[in-house]
C-alpha cells in the first residue's frame, strides 16, 4: 500500500503544487501552493523533483498515518509536529514507516504549514497540475479539501534519497513579523483614488479580516476616497466600478474604498472593481503566512525591485539546496 490515511483532515488541507498555468483567459486561476518558498523547500527536503504535489495546511493541521517507508518534511508556518506523539524537527528530512502517525499541535506563528512526502501526492494531474481548486471542485484530491478518513494516493518513491536529518538553517526560513511588509507595484486603476488616499494606502497598517482564503484576503484599516468622474459607458455607477477587466494575481481591489481585497492563487480572474496595484509575486509567500487578525503594510516598489526580489528568492532556494547537500 502506498497511501496516506487521513485520520483528521484539519481545517482546510489541500493538495497543491506549482500551479496550473495557461487557463486564466477561461477564468481558471492557477491555484498552487500559496507560499511557494516553503512548498519548494519541503520538496527538496524529501528528494522530490520541483513541482511534486504536497499538502498545504491552513490554521489547523491534519493527522496522517503512513502505510510504507517514506521521507517526510514539514515547512511553512510554525507548529509543534509529532510522529507517534514524539516531537520531530520542522524544516528537516524525517523518515517514517508503515503505521507511523504525523500530527500537529496548535499553530504558534504563520498560517500555512506544508507537508511533503517522498514520491509526492499521487493524485491524477488535471490540465497539467495536481493543484486543488475548490471553487469548482477541480484538480487535487476530488477537487476538495481533505476530510477525515480520506485515503490519499502517493507517487512512486524512487527519488534520490535525501540525507536524513538534513535541516534548513534558521536564516533560510521565513520569518513572521508583527506587521508583514508586502512590496507592491502601485498602478492599474489607481487613478480612481485621490493622491492623498493613495498615500494613506501605503502608510496605514491593514488588518487581515476573517474573510481571508485562497481566493483573496479582505483587509480593513483605512478609508480611501475616489476621484469624481463622469461614468464611462459600461462601467457601472458605483465609484469603485470600472468596465470589467482582468485581475492580476496579487492585485488589490478596493470595493467601497474601505475594504481592499488582495487576490491570491485561486483568484477570481476578472471583474468590475478598480484595482490599485499588485503585490509582487515573491511577497505572495509572505501574505500566505498571515492570518485573520494579523497586520500587513503595502510598500511601493518599482519593476526593478520586483524583479530583484525574484532573483533573491531564487538565490535563497539555491542556497537552501546547497545547504542540504552537505
Amino acid at each position: 500500500m502506498s497511501e496516506l490515511l487521513v485520520h483528521r483532515g484539519g481545517l482546510h488541507t489541500t493538495v497543491q503544487d506549482i500551479g496550473r498555468d495557461g487557463h486564466y483567459s477561461l477564468g481558471i486561476p492557477p491555484s498552487g501552493a500559496m507560499d511557494q518558498y516553503s512548498y519548494r523547500v519541503a520538496n527538496m527536503l524529501v528528494g522530490n523533483p520541483d513541482g511534486a504535489a504536497a499538502l498545504e495546511v491552513t490554521y489547523v493541521g491534519p493527522r496522517i498515518e503512513f502505510t510504507d517507508d517514506r521521507y517526510v518534511a514539514v515547512t511553512g508556518a510554525e507548529a509543534a509536529v509529532t510522529v507517534n506523539s514524539e516531537p520531530v524537527e520542522r524544516w528537516s528530512t524525517l523518515t517514517v514507516r508503515a503505521g507511523d502517525v504525523l500530527d500537529f499541535a496548535m499553530l504558534t506563528a504563520g498560517a500555512r504549514p506544508y507537508i511533503a512526502v517522498s514520491g509526492g501526492i499521487g493524485v491524477d494531474s488535471y490540465l497539467g497540475s495536481r493543484s486543488t481548486y475548490t471553487l469548482t471542485g477541480l484538480g487535487g484530491f476530488q477537487g476538495r479539501a481533505l476530510k477525515n478518513d480520506d485515503r490519499l494516493p502517493l507517487g512512486d518513491d524512487s527519488v534520490a534519497p535525501p540525507t536524513v536529518g538534513s535541516t534548513v538553517p534558521e536564516k533560510l526560513r521565513p520569518t513572521f513579523p508583527e506587521v508583514a511588509t508586502l512590496r507592491t507595484m502601485i498602478g492599474l486603476c489607481s487613478y480612481r483614488i485621490t493622491d492623498e488616499s493613495m498615500r494613506e494606502f501605503t502608510e496605514v497598517p491593514w488588518k487581515v479580516t476573517k474573510d481571508a482564503d485562497r481566493i483573496g484576503y479582505r483587509l480593513r484599516g483605512g478609508s480611501l476616497r475616489f476621484v469624481d468622474r463622469k461614468v464611462p459607458h459600461g462601467a457601472g455607477s458605483d465609484p469603485a466600478n470600472v468596465v470589467d477587466l482582468g485581475y492580476p494575481i496579487g492585485s488589490i481591489q478596493v470595493p467601497g474604498g474601505d475594504e481592499p481585497i488582495v487576490l491570491l492563487n485561486d483568484a477570481v480572474t476578472a471583474g468590475g472593481y478598480a484595482t490599485v496595484g499588485t503585490v509582487v509575486s515573491v511577497d505572495r509567500d509572505t501574505i500566505a503566512q498571515t492570518k485573520s487578525g494579523d497586520q500587513v503594510r503595502f510598500e511601493p516598489v518599482d519593476l526593478d525591485a520586483a524583479l530583484a526580489a525574484r532573483r533573491d528568492r531564487r538565490e535563497r532556494l539555491e542556497r537552501t539546496r546547497e545547504s542540504l547537500r552537505r
Partner: peptide, 9 residues
C-alpha cells in the same frame, strides 16, 4: 479552552 483558529467568536 483556547481558540485553535483565528476569526470571529
Amino acid at each position: 479552552i483556547k481558540a485553535a483558529i483565528p476569526g470571529v467568536f
